[in-house]
Amino acid sequence: MREKILSIIEKNSRIDLRELAIILGEEETDIVNEMEQMEKEGVICGYHTLIDWEKTNVEKVSALIEVRVTPQRGHGFDSIAERIYKYPEVHAVYLISGGYDLLVSLEGKSLKEVSNFVSDKLSTLDTVLSTATHFILKKYKDHGTILDKKEVDERIQVTP
């Protein structure tokens, strides 16, 4: 039941729990209990909304920053990652295999705000060796959802 609930709410976190119970053939109370349990266990970490800010009047700038760091004795990358993720403007922090160590996803109001963050807060950390900032120009798809939807003519073009 767990996997089935998750695969549905991963795409639609606003689904009515009664409806979820009906389509999965379960009791509503069992669904509610299972969801609460998963929240407690940290399997379900939040219910966010995917927003295409481009379509609003709010100015936002997103960037992905590659960060190379010196791992610390006894902590590896964890303590430096924690110092970075505590900044509220940081959206996500991943430890990455390959050419650099941490990938930091950041959101700011303007280019300047993002570059200030990098120069004042990120690159000044002791263990940070270098950064490379990539500004996001356009989001085509996010969280499995296509943002840049094209108009399609739904009329069928062939004879069935």
Binding site: K4, E19, I22, I23, L24, G25
Partner: peptide, 10 residues
């Protein structure tokens, strides 16, 4: 099959 089954129950 799972998707059809969900619709069937609905």
């Amino acid at each position: 099959r799972e998707a059809y089954n969900q619709r069937r129950r609905y």
